[in-house]
Amino acid sequence: MSEQIDAPEQVPPWRPEDGPAPRVWCWPPGDQPALYVYDGGRWKYAPVMARLDHADGRTEYQVTLQSDPDRGTVHRAYWWPQPGLRRAHGSHAEPTDRETRPRPAG
């Protein structure tokens, strides 16, 4: 009997009314961790661009995903953990962090 897996829930963009900006963690190009994302009925490999730690304790992963041959690569953000995401592999490098800051107006 096969397990029913739903597509993972995506994260809406952060807004100031959501509270403090999340802390962003990034890895060097070429040594990023990766997830498998359940998309379109298949598990797809997705390198992690960033991990965001939100003030409310939730974790968001931003990934690059090959959606389908016609649409090409897309960038998506997902809450972690959830059944439609699985760890593919880690990184040998330590991530660097920075606090997000709103862009100056104008």
Rank of each mutant, 00 (worst) to 15 (best):
M1H: 07
E3L: 14
Q4K: 13
Q4I: 15
I5G: 04
D6I: 04
A7S: 13
A7N: 08
P8K: 05
E9N: 11
E9G: 08
E9R: 15
Q10G: 15
Q10V: 15
V11R: 14
P13N: 07
P13T: 06
P13V: 04
P16F: 05
P16E: 03
E17Y: 03
E17A: 10
G19S: 11
G19F: 12
A21C: 02
P22N: 10
W25N: 06
W25E: 13
C26D: 11
C26T: 15
C26L: 14
W27D: 01
W27V: 01
P29K: 14
P29I: 09
P29N: 13
G30K: 08
D31R: 06
D31H: 06
Q32D: 02
Q32K: 13
Q32Y: 00
A34T: 10
L35S: 05
L35W: 15
Y36F: 14
Y38M: 07
Y38T: 01
D39M: 03
G40D: 08
G41D: 08
G41Q: 10
G41W: 11
W43E: 12
W43R: 10
K44D: 01
K44A: 06
K44C: 08
K44G: 04
Y45G: 03
A46H: 10
A46F: 10
A46R: 12
P47R: 09
V48F: 03
M49W: 02
M49D: 11
A50G: 00
L52A: 07
L52R: 12
L52G: 01
D53W: 01
H54W: 13
H54V: 00
H54F: 10
D56K: 08
G57I: 09
T59E: 14
T59K: 12
T59V: 15
T59R: 14
E60K: 05
E60Y: 03
E60Q: 14
Y61F: 13
Y61K: 03
Q62P: 00
Q62A: 11
Q62D: 14
V63T: 05
T64F: 05
T64E: 14
L65E: 11
Q66P: 00
S67Q: 12
S67V: 04
S67E: 11
D68H: 14
D68Y: 02
D68N: 15
D70Q: 11
V74M: 14
V74T: 10
H75N: 13
H75V: 15
R76K: 15
R76V: 11
R76S: 13
A77G: 14
Y78R: 01
W79T: 07
W79A: 07
W80R: 07
P81T: 10
Q82E: 09
Q82M: 12
P83Q: 06
P83G: 06
G84P: 07
G84S: 09
G84Y: 07
L85S: 05
L85A: 04
L85H: 05
R86D: 06
A88P: 00
H89P: 01
H89T: 02
G90A: 11
G90N: 12
S91V: 03
H92T: 13
A93P: 02
A93C: 07
A93V: 00
E94K: 09
P95I: 05
T96Y: 01
T96G: 04
T96F: 01
T96M: 02
T96L: 02
D97Q: 13
R98D: 07
E99G: 10
T100W: 15
T100G: 15
T100D: 15
T100H: 13
R101L: 04
P102E: 10
R103W: 09
R103F: 04
P104C: 00
P104E: 11
A105K: 06
A105Q: 05
G106W: 14
